[in-house]
């Protein structure tokens, strides 16, 4: 599987967020997006997921089931955790596993050590715990491309180590990761892309 972007330009609300962004990412490779606030890291991830249309440029994913869009082949961990406070931790994860991947039954909360909280409403989780629950979608549904927007926000050291372990295993299995982060996540990124405000970057 290979993801290639050529001269992507993103315009939001009449403002050019970034232009001429190109990169290539193959199996088992990771790309780190860096840049100041507002440089367009999140916009680029949303654009790759297909939530935003590029104003110009091409985005292609080759070597996967061509019936699926890039978004349908990827996990998108955005700023919002997409959790329902009125549902329990287990119900939240099971819903997304079933909706996104068609997986039956209850999913394991073990990777991020939330099994003790399985039955409490997600509204009672702390910010870090909510993040961990959102990140559990990565293990519950197998998808090749991971789009992670500030995945480390709110995570404690143990959870961060878990996330790094998951990402390393995903890469070893031939998966692709694009992460936007201000801090060094802790895995070896083969590619780095610095988005520098309105200037072109590559």
């Amino acid at each position: 599987m290979k993801l290639s972007a050529e001269n992507l330009t993103c315009v939001r609300g009449g403002r050019t967020v970034f232009e001429n962004v190109s990169f290539e990412l193959a199996d088992g490779e990771a790309l780190l997006l860096t840049g100041p606030n507002g440089a367009g890291k999140s916009s680029l991830l949303r654009l790759i997921a297909g939530l935003v249309e590029p104003a110009a440029g091409n985005l292609r994913l080759t070597g996967h089931d061509s019936d699926l869009s890039i978004g349908q082949a990827s996990h998108f961990i955005g700023h919002a955790n997409a959790l329902k406070g009125a549902m329990s931790v287990q119900e939240n994860l099971d819903f997304w596993a079933r909706f996104l991947g068609g997986a039956e039954g209850s999913q394991s909360l073990e990777p991020f050590a939330l099994e003790a909280h399985a039955t409490i409403p997600a509204a009672l989780l702390s910010a870090g715990q909510s993040r961990r629950l959102a990140l559990l979608r990565l293990t519950a549904v197998p998808r090749r491309l991971w789009l992670l927007d500030e995945p480390t926000v709110g995570l404690d050291t143990a959870s961060l180590a878990t996330l790094v372990g998951l990402m390393e295993r995903h890469l070893a299995d031939g998966g692709l990761i694009i992460a936007a982060s201000h801090v060094d996540v802790g895995i070896a990124f083969k590619h780095r892309l610095e988005l520098a405000g309105r200037r072109a970057a590559s």
């Binding site: 939530l51 349908q72 996990h75 998108f76 700023h79 919002a80 997409a82 959790l83 996104l100 068609g102």
Partner: peptide, 13 residues
């Protein structure tokens, strides 16, 4: 829409 579920649904099958 507010909690991000809707955009995640767009990425469903």
């Amino acid at each position: 829409h507010e909690d991000g579920s809707l955009e995640l649904m767009l990425l469903g099958p």
